[in-house]
């Protein structure tokens, strides 16, 4: 299979206007990725699938990753696609696409019309991260129940207050328990009362 720089060049030629970057992995892994912007990910994916040099007809894995904002980088939710070719027995080509973390702007185009294997995996990424896939035939929750309102795999998710508290609840879990009136063991309730009286 061609080197990643060559793939980037060819893709940039075929899909005009696409902003493609190479993201390197660890030196041992040898699995660099192509970061494509949201507007052109569908065209790049289609090109990789249909071009006779690549024929990437097997989309193996779709993952969502949550990157919290740091000093030098803004936060984002990244969706990673791993593509393989069953006819030419080559791969993987890794495609990444990023979306902002705020829920209203967190959407990317869906690649399900190209590879049907993305159908359930994109639904899972929506369920756990909240990233919407435009063009997905049936985008709804898959692993959690429909009435669930949070996106649990995000890094800033606070779990519900029902951990059996060894040790006692603290920080966010305690705040939420106090607000929602979750179950508290008698000793924790007594302590809270004592703290309030002071």
């Amino acid at each position: 299979m061609e080197a990643i720089e060559k793939i980037k060049e060819i893709a940039a030629q075929v899909v005009p206007g696409a902003k493609i970057e190479i993201i390197n992995s660890t030196p041992a892994a040898q699995q660099p990725a192509l970061l494509v912007d949201r507007e052109h990910i569908y065209a790049v994916g289609k090109f990789l699938k249909e071009d006779p040099r690549f024929q990437m007809d097997f989309c193996s894995c779709v993952t969502g990753v949550d990157y919290l904002p740091k000093a030098d980088k803004p936060g984002c939710i990244e969706v990673v696609y791993h593509l393989y070719s069953t006819t030419q027995k080559q791969g993987p080509i890794v495609l990444k696409v990023r979306a902002p973390r705020e829920l209203e702007q967190c959407h990317v185009p869906s690649l399900t019309p190209l590879w049907r294997s993305c159908e359930f995996q994109e639904r899972e990424a929506y369920d756990l991260y909240g990233v919407k896939f435009n063009g997905h035939p049936d985008l709804r929750r898959i692993l959690m129940w429909d009435e669930f309102t949070d996106f649990p795999m995000r890094k800033d998710y606070t779990p519900p207050a029902d951990y059996e508290w060894e040790p006692t609840p603290h920080d966010d879990t305690l705040d939420r328990a106090v607000q929602e009136g979750g179950i508290m063991p008698p000793t924790a309730r007594e302590e809270l009362e004592r703290a309030k009286k002071k």
Binding site: T26, A29, Q31, S60, C61, V80
Partner: peptide
């Protein structure tokens, strides 16, 4: 410790392709 980066490893499990990202 593992240096920063990402990787995908897969095997032929009895049920199909099992991979870890």
């Amino acid at each position: 410790k593992i240096p920063p980066g990402d990787g995908y490893g897969r095997i032929e499990a009895p049920k199909g392709e099992l991979g870890f990202y």
